[in-house]
Computed example of a mutant assay.
Amino acid sequence: MLSLKLPRPLSIDQIPQVFHEQGILFGYRPPQSSAAACLLSLFQMTNETLNIWTHLLPFWFFTWRFVTLYVTDVQNDSYSWPLLVYMGTSCVYPFASSCAHTFSSMSKNARHICYFLDYGAVNLFSLGSAIAYSAYTFPDKLVCTTFHDYYVALAVLNTIVSTGLSCYSRFLEIQKPRLCKILRILAFAYPYTWDSFPIFYRLFLFPGESAQNEASMYHQKHMAMTLLASFLYSAHLPERLAPGRFDYIGHSHQLFHVCVILATHMQMEAILLDKTLRKEWLLASSRPLSLVQITGAMILCIIFSLSNILYFSAALYRIPEPELHKKET
């Protein structure tokens, strides 16, 4: 008879330092778990369980919205193609994140590679957001400007650099944890800032007549939730104040996941509203992205981001174990 019994979760002093999480003392899965054990751990309470489910369930919700939209709206409408890309990437990143958290306990190198792929998916979503913003949310005064013309191209470059920087930061995780955290936050903050510049301009400077609509409220909520998510990710609250009290429920990474998903939901609603309410003005006043531009941007992002991931994954096996994992004295 097949036994579904899983190993008892471990404490922080029973696992290698590379698996440690600040303020989390108990609930760690064994660091050499099999793929089957990792999958079964979705139904066992560990300190990763809610990290997985807080992105796995939204993945199915976003997928349902994507499929529904594709069937009813996108197939033969070139104006909707940027939305198709955005909705697709909004499904990719929560799925990649849930997979990364699921299989990160298979080995030290598997943990790093899982998160390399997670970072690549987040940056792919960043590009999807930039494409949707370019098509539907730009304030009137920035439409058809030089900034608008190069906005997506530079967003592609940002995703490539960001993936490389975030992957590199993992090599500093043990030796220089503060620098690691700074580089990783920077790796995601600057593409977000670039992508969101048209929204900042629209909300705080000159939105223009066509951009003064109900979507602005959702853009504001999206920004607020993103800022809260960034704070939780960087501050490690509340577990830093009470180590061991939030090991299973309520630690910062779970709250970060919830805020990120809520931010994406608000962003999605804002983009959908802008797409509908500004359609007539945008079709008359802007130069829509062509299929070649959209496809080219996505392919370049995928090729170079995967190249980064492959390079840093190979580096894990080239660098001697002590250099990668030994803490500085």
Rank of each mutant, 00 (worst) to 15 (best):
R202W: 00
D149A: 15
L39I: 13
Q22M: 12
A270I: 08
G296I: 03
A211N: 07
S78R: 14
H253E: 04
N213A: 09
E48F: 04
C114G: 09
S252D: 02
I52F: 03
L172N: 04
I15K: 08
D140T: 08
A314V: 08
F43W: 13
A155K: 04
T137L: 15
A224D: 10
Y79H: 09
T72F: 04
I302N: 10
E209Y: 11
I24N: 07
H257T: 05
L186V: 04
Y86K: 11
F26Q: 14
L142I: 02
D195P: 00
L57M: 12
R318G: 01
G250N: 08
L289P: 06
Y192W: 09
M87T: 06
K108S: 14
L255I: 14
S286T: 14
E173Q: 14
A229Q: 12
G250A: 02
S3Q: 11
L50T: 04
W53Y: 06
M298S: 08
T329H: 13
I52Q: 13
I294L: 13
D77S: 05
F231R: 12
Y151T: 10
I174V: 13
I249W: 02
D140V: 07
T89W: 10
V85C: 07
E280Y: 01
F246V: 09
A110H: 12
F200K: 10
A36F: 08
W64Y: 15
P9V: 10
P322V: 10
L255T: 05
S166Y: 07
S3G: 12
T63C: 14
T193V: 15
L83V: 08
M217V: 12
L306H: 05
L324I: 09
A110Q: 05
L172Y: 01
Y70P: 02
S210Y: 04
R29T: 03
Y136V: 02
A215R: 03
P58H: 10
F188P: 01
S126V: 01
Y192S: 13
K275V: 01
C91M: 10
S98P: 08
T89L: 11
A37Y: 03
Q75P: 00
R278M: 11
S252P: 00
P94H: 07
I24T: 09
G88N: 03
C114W: 01
Y133K: 00
E269V: 11
F304G: 05
Y192P: 00
P322R: 15
K108M: 12
H148G: 06
K181W: 05
N308W: 04
L324D: 01
P139E: 06
A132D: 02
F26Y: 13
Q267L: 11
H101L: 08
N47Q: 13
F59I: 06
Y28Q: 12
E321C: 11
L282W: 01
E321P: 03
L310G: 15
L142M: 15
T68S: 15
S90L: 04
L310M: 13
A242I: 09
W281M: 11
V18M: 13
H257M: 12
S162W: 02
P322I: 09
G250H: 05
L283C: 10
S234C: 13
K279D: 07
C259H: 01
V74P: 00
L25M: 13
A187L: 08
L117R: 03
W194I: 06
L289E: 09
F61L: 15
K5M: 01
A263H: 04
M223W: 01
